[in-house]
């Protein structure tokens, strides 16, 4: 009974937070939710131009729009979910005065909103691509969704850990941003693991985000098989950081000074 009560309260809190976050982030501008679409669309358009100019040849019968989308969206799922979660306490600290609101709720609300937003964006771009190119087939829906969701969960778990660490060490967020900057170039947005020289591939496959991108591409394109992607590898990262994140969240509850 007490567990049921606790779960009900947590549901109420997270539900209220998601509504509040949506209003705060998208409600103030007249373009609203469209902003969420603009960034990925901008990237797709840019690389469309660059690839056409450079005569980039894509393996496995991939089209540029699909290739870039399956690169940029898993990357953004990782990166935006991470950043949003990491900053959850900084932005919403006054809310922690309400006793039933805990740091973990702030994090979960942001994870849900960001993941759902980017998945919708992915769906919309895919639909747009279908309308323009007439390509509607998805090779393996589960694999595609798996690649996307694992990338989001990876961002969520690292973000949670960094949120907790940020309470203990002030400069955490700045360092995370510096460390993550090269990820844009290392996560397979512009290349596939199959094309890489063996020595380089060995190193780049340490990056779990690359695995997420590879899984998504394998899922979307019939002609592409991600020989080197390993879902279990991403899951191991997620479990590790979630463990660390939950631990630090508990610690941060005690360390935080509200007044």
């Amino acid at each position: 009974m007490r567990l049921a009560d606790a779960l009900h309260t947590q549901y109420q809190v997270i539900h209220a937070l998601v509504i509040r976050e949506t209003r705060t982030r998208y409600g103030a501008s007249s373009l609203g939710y469209l902003w969420a679409l603009l960034e990925p669309l901008f990237w797709v358009a840019t690389f469309y131009g660059i690839f056409a100019y450079a005569h980039r040849h894509l393996p496995g019968g991939m089209d540029v729009a699909g290739f870039i989308t399956t690169g940029i969206i898993p990357y953004m799922l990782f990166r935006s979910v991470l950043t949003q979660t990491m900053l959850a306490i900084n932005t919403n600290k006054p809310l922690l005065f309400y006793p039933q609101v805990k740091p973990i709720d702030l994090a979960i609300a942001r994870i849900l909103l960001e993941t759902f937003t980017l998945l919708s964006v992915f769906g919309l771009i895919l639909a747009g691509r279908g309308l323009v190119l007439g390509v509607w087939s998805i090779d393996n829906v589960l694999l595609l969704l798996g690649g996307l969701l694992l990338s989001g969960l990876l961002g969520a778990s690292v973000g949670l850990a960094m949120m907790g660490l940020g309470v203990i060490f002030n400069g955490t967020q700045r360092w995370v941003n510096i460390v993550l900057r090269p990820m844009f170039f290392l996560s397979g947005i512009f290349f596939t693991a199959n094309e890489l020289p063996a020595t380089m591939r060995e190193y780049l496959l340490w990056n779990p985000v690359l695995h997420g991108v590879e899984l998504a591409r394998d899922g979307l394109f019939q002609g592409y098989i991600a020989h080197y992607a390993d879902a279990g590898y991403i899951v191991a990262w997620i479990i590790g950081f979630t463990y660390l994140g939950l631990l630090l969240e508990r610690l941060s509850r005690r360390r935080m000074r509200l007044a």
């Binding site: 009900h8 109420q12 509040r20 705060t24 039933q100």
Partner: peptide, 24 residues
């Protein structure tokens, strides 16, 4: 006594709705 978790971007009404939601 603290000036509240009122979010400056949101309206008074939206803030009131938030509080009533978290208390069910």
């Amino acid at each position: 006594g603290f000036s509240g978790g009122a979010n400056p971007v949101l309206t008074g009404e939206e803030n009131a709705r938030f509080v009533s939601r978290i208390y069910g």
